[in-house]
């Protein structure tokens, strides 16, 4: 049976990228512990609106851990701490205790400017994707899907890389603001599949160049990204990206 908990929530308010921003605080009373973290924020907002105030703004959408929209930094961890690694929307209040102080902050990274409160601009990820995160193929009737056999192991590994949801937790957790885990996951997915090989060198170079241009930091292999990734992407992807990139550059 669900029990109720009471706690203090400190949440970040910031009016646009130029504003300095500050914390606001509120006592939350008798919240059922089977509500999700975002539902708890819904309750907070309902209270704020009833007080005639503007609600606390944050990104969220599917609320089942797949769209990658949610992006809250909770008590020092992107998405908060869950058992198996999950997004904010899959964090439940039973992970907290009576009397806790819960601090909610936005992703803080120069490449992700704050739009409002905890809503940040992650369009840099789209730009990196546009630089080369695809296989150039015309819509039409390509060869039969089974024409190229792909070993199950390769397909499974490519799938593991492809599960990245582009939430940006890796960048948020990285002390260097590096996007290497995100970029490497995409590069790896295609590098592991025969369909992606023809453009592999071009892709690695283009995506890394775009990533650098957009002001993401340099990877120093601290593994913070891997530790917080809700989809458990591995830094083995980063090694693969390094390999692909160095190989491509040496071949130039």
């Amino acid at each position: 049976m669900a029990k109720n908990i009471s706690f203090t929530i400190k949440y970040w308010k910031q009016n646009g990228p130029k504003d300095k921003g500050h914390f606001e605080q509120r006592e939350m009373k008798n919240i059922p512990d089977d509500t999700s973290f975002l539902e708890m924020l819904d309750i907070l907002n309902e209270e704020l609106i009833n007080d005639g105030k503007e609600p606390f703004v944050f990104d969220h959408d599917c609320r089942e851990g797949i769209c990658g929209m949610c992006s809250l930094y909770i008590n020092g961890t992107p998405h908060g701490k869950t058992a198996t690694g999950a997004t904010t929307c899959q964090l439940y209040m039973r992970r907290f205790n009576d009397g806790d102080v819960i601090t909610v902050e936005p992703w803080r990274s120069a490449a992700f400017p704050v739009i409002k409160d905890c809503m940040v601009d992650r369009s840099a990820f789209d730009k990196i994707q546009a630089a080369g995160g695809y296989v150039t193929v015309r819509t039409g009737q390509p060869q039969d899907a089974n024409a190229i056999l792909i070993p199950k192991q390769d397909a499974d590994e490519a799938m593991d890389c492809a599960t990245c949801i582009g939430c940006g937790a890796c960048v948020a957790a990285c002390k260097n603001g590096s996007a290497m885990l995100y970029v490497s996951s995409k590069v790896s997915q295609f590098a592991l599949l025969p369909q992606g090989r023809p453009e592999a060198a071009k892709r690695a170079k283009a995506m890394v160049a775009k990533m650098d241009e957009l002001g993401f930091g340099n990877c120093t292999n601290t593994r913070a990204c891997e530790a917080v990734c809700p989809k458990n992407e591995s830094i083995a992807n980063i090694a693969r990206l390094n390999r692909e990139f160095i190989k491509a550059k040496l071949a130039d």
Binding site: K10, T77, A173, N176, G177, G217, N218
Partner: peptide
Amino acid sequence: NRRARGASRYAVTDRP
């Protein structure tokens, strides 16, 4: 890397 991290710092951090 410091520049990439941005001007604002987290109030609470937790090392995994």
